[in-house]
Design a binder for these strands. Sequence first.
RNA 1: UGACUCAUGGUGUAAUGGUAACACUACGGUUUUUGGUACCGUCAUUCAAGGUUCGAGUCCUUGUGAGUCAACCA
Length: 553
Amino acid sequence: MEDKEKSLNFIEQIIVDDLKTDKHQGNVHTRFPPEPNGFLHIGHIKAICINFETAAKYGGRTNLRFDDTNPVTEDTSYVEAIQKDIKWLGFDWEDRLYFASDYFDALYEFAQELILKGLAYVDDSTSDEIASMKGSPSEAGIESPYRNRSVEENLSLFRGMKNGDFQDGSKVLRAKVDMGAPNLLMRDPLIYRIKHAHHHRTGDKWCIYPMYDFAHGQSDSIENITHSLCSLEFIHHRPLYDWFIEKLEIFPSRQIEFARMNVEYMITSKRKLLQLVDNGLVSGWDDARMPTVAGLRRKGYPAAALRAFCDKAGVAKRENLIEFDLLESCVRDELNRVSDRAMVVVNPLKVIITNYPENKYEDLEALDNPEDENSGSHLIPFSKEIYIEREDFMEDPPKKYFRLGPGRAVRLKSAYIIQCEGFKKNENGEVEEVYCTYIANSKSGEDVSGVKAKGTLHWVSVKHAITCELRILDHLFTDPTPDSHEDRNFLDFYNKDSMTIATAHMEPWLNKAVLGKHYQFMRNAYFALDQDSTDDHKIFNRTVALKASWGGK
RNA sequence: UGACUCAUGGUGUAAUGGUAACACUACGGUUUUUGGUACCGUCAUUCAAGGUUCGAGUCCUUGUGAGUCAACCA
């Protein structure tokens, strides 16, 4: 138990109050209800965390329920992908995997019940007619000419709809609420439509399908969901949600809306994400730049970091735009704990250690992860010629530059202290080689030299280094809210430098890099092995750069 | 024009009528065989105007601003 009391968000307040009044005999049951028609993204992650974590906090459970009431857009392949993503995020719905389509029979009965109560009717109006009779926010709607059909006629017509007697679009079932209601959704909403379409689970059993409003709340009720958490956009649906529960006299689930999370430089519109894929601006839904779970995972963001991020972003009802910095902060925090450290040189500059024997090499030991006491170590070969970063040497360095320069000494990480004795330039005036001497008794861990070096550099042995590919990932867009500009298309803000490729020299140990593990290339950034790698060509995605507190020059 | 939400530092979230707090960012500093990490410090009288109260970010009224709603989508 934590001794510090963390304040509750407004949803937790509601739950605590319900617990106090014993509203549901101490039960807390939530659900995550994705529609299987697309891939999960950062916005879903927030919803998943809120649903699973809130329930868990109060000893409750969370169901996974696919909201599959529209057969024309949904598919089983998404069902698999979504489950994989939720598991990866670290959540478990145990044996509570449900589908709204499991309830089609029950929903059909509910509809008949409503008809019997004179609270639903079959409408023969066209889609356009229904829309025009709906009215507008400022003017009341008009009642449909079919609104007062008899219960018997409605019942028989609805059965006819179910039996396939009518064509798509020719009839709908509507709830009889109030065409004058200020809330448009209460103006006799459609609850069943005819769709002669094959459903991914129920096949051809049905040719009528319930609309969201007639499926979601009832599904919640059937599953005894106590707190149905959804985003603010559904707030206008709540009166309808409650209306059906009241009229049907079923379990009183309660819908609670929270503001969805917006993150700088990310978009979550399914349609727009698809455009990126279709236009070839990304390689697919799992491109490491995509805000999808698959993309974030591929980029190297750990599930724990994503969970921490959602937690720190908080829960409330106001519009928000979370800074990308917070996400990166959470990612670094987690990665610092779990990443193995390695040395990789991106822009090589050759250093020749003049007093080191020509053919000698030694294996130097380096801790895999100094932040983790239980981590092991690995060996790094050291020899006469090494690469350091070009930016780690300056011909005429300023005073605050802690790296290599003529006459200066630096520590080579896990190795020796070296002293710069000179350098050579090529015909273009660029530094080509740097000459150093090493201090033999300054070996890492057994340094008795007494020499103090302010800076520490990473390096690789020229002879032993292996070439690899680095994919440097940046924001997909140049604007923090690319789809918020009325006069500009979000694609105008596509960042053409969102992925740049670099070739680098890595220490041999990295050839054993594993998919799903995280690596810190010291003094540079965190990287994760990409799935495109092969045995002799390793590819790493830059997850996030290390913080840099020195600007240079 | 209607209804429904919301309004606290640069960002996000707290403060449940009683001294505006925490995190991220930014900027300083300490430590360091990663200019990383860790640690310390600095940065807001709460949209406006009235009202209730001994006391208001919190309650009431009126404004102002922002968002959402008129798919046989979810």
